[in-house]
């Protein structure tokens, strides 16, 4: 007999977060709920307000209105309790470039008040885990983008945070480093850590996230699982190129029967097909349908 575990309180609940800079409204009444031990992705183009949301939730700045509870603690009244339980890896490396990788980790160990021995042990472990042992004695300023990001993550992890904010963790990284970061995120979640991720890459949200919230111009335009969001764009389509060079876009129901119908109809009309491509809906379609913007990721990549 299996017993269902008792429902756990959300790792993060935000209610009506609002922030403006001058007369520019950056976040307009955002509500978010992140279940513990899951990956939550805040997806949006540049300037959508993702970083502002992370800055508010990680206690860097205060919202103009709204409240949030993180791991059971109120953001406004117990910021230090929140800080003690979260980790933040921002878009720009939060490392001390003048120190070595090892010194950076030992600095963090001191700041989370580990005793000397435990700090050394954890620093050594993290250097190994993030493939930085060979460069432990090198200054962080000399590191490549991918190495800096790994060191940054290692520094975030030294305090054993229960909720980690990753603000565009793979922006500017090459594909290999990006996959390395993805693997780390998956390992962390397997260990029970909750991840709050922002990204402008649809693929990244699709790959990693349990829940995706789409942010556009400071407003949440959709929230749900990847599959739920894909359902918002009803069907995909089939693109056929005829021998004459004509291209047709035909609605497609997503199954074999629907595909056969399309082919039968083409046969019946005596059309010669030169090429055929099936397009299932992906997050690109969702994003396009929801925000009306052309794919924001292409320009950024």
């Amino acid at each position: 007999m299996t017993s269902t575990p008792p429902p756990q309180p959300p790792a993060l609940v935000a209610d009506g977060l609002r922030k403006s800079y001058g007369d520019k409204l950056v976040l307009d009444s955002i509500d978010l709920t992140v279940p513990p031990g899951t990956v939550f992705a805040l997806l949006g183009p540049n300037g959508a307000g993702k970083t502002t949301a992370v800055e508010i939730l990680s206690t860097l700045i205060s919202p103009d209105a709204g409240t949030a509870r993180i791991l059971g603690h109120d953001l406004a009244t117990e910021p230090d309790a929140v800080r003690a339980r979260i980790g933040v890896t921002g878009q720009f490396s939060a490392i001390d470039g003048l120190l070595t990788a090892e010194e950076n980790l030992l600095l963090m160990a001191d700041l989370v008040h580990l005793d000397r021995e435990e700090g050394r042990r954890r620093a050594t472990d993290l250097l190994a885990r993030f493939d930085l042992t060979d460069v432990a004695k090198n200054r962080a300023a000399t590191f490549s983008g991918g190495m800096k990001r790994r060191l940054d993550l290692a520094m975030t992890l030294i305090g054993d945070p229960q909720l980690i904010f990753l603000d565009e963790p793979t922006t500017g990284l090459d594909p290999r480093s990006r996959r390395a970061v993805w693997d780390i995120v998956r390992e962390l979640v397997a260990d029970g850590v909750t991840i709050f991720l922002t990204t402008q890459y649809l693929e990244e949200a699709d790959q990693l996230a349990d829940t995706i919230a789409v942010l556009d111009h400071g407003t949440l335009v959709a929230q749900g699982t990847s599959a739920e969001l894909k359902r918002l764009v009803p069907t995909g389509h089939v693109e056929v190129t005829l021998t004459g060079g004509e291209t047709r876009r035909l609605p497609y129901g997503g199954d074999v029967r629907s595909l056969r119908t399309i082919l039968d109809e083409l046969d019946a009309a005596d059309e010669q097909v030169a090429d055929l491509a099936i397009h299932t809906p992906d997050l690109d379609d969702v994003f396009l349908a929801l925000t009306g913007d052309p794919r924001p990721t292409e320009a950024a990549r």
Binding site: R83, L99, V112, D160, G192
Partner: peptide, 28 residues
């Protein structure tokens, strides 16, 4: 989840200041 049982880190003004001092002396 160990939300309630984990030892909670609190700011320690003397210790944190000494850590930051070490950081600055290391820079120099």
């Amino acid at each position: 989840m160990s939300t309630t049982t984990a030892p909670v880190n609190r700011p320690q003004i003397v210790r944190d200041s000494m850590t930051m001092l070490r950081r600055n002396l290391l820079h120099s």
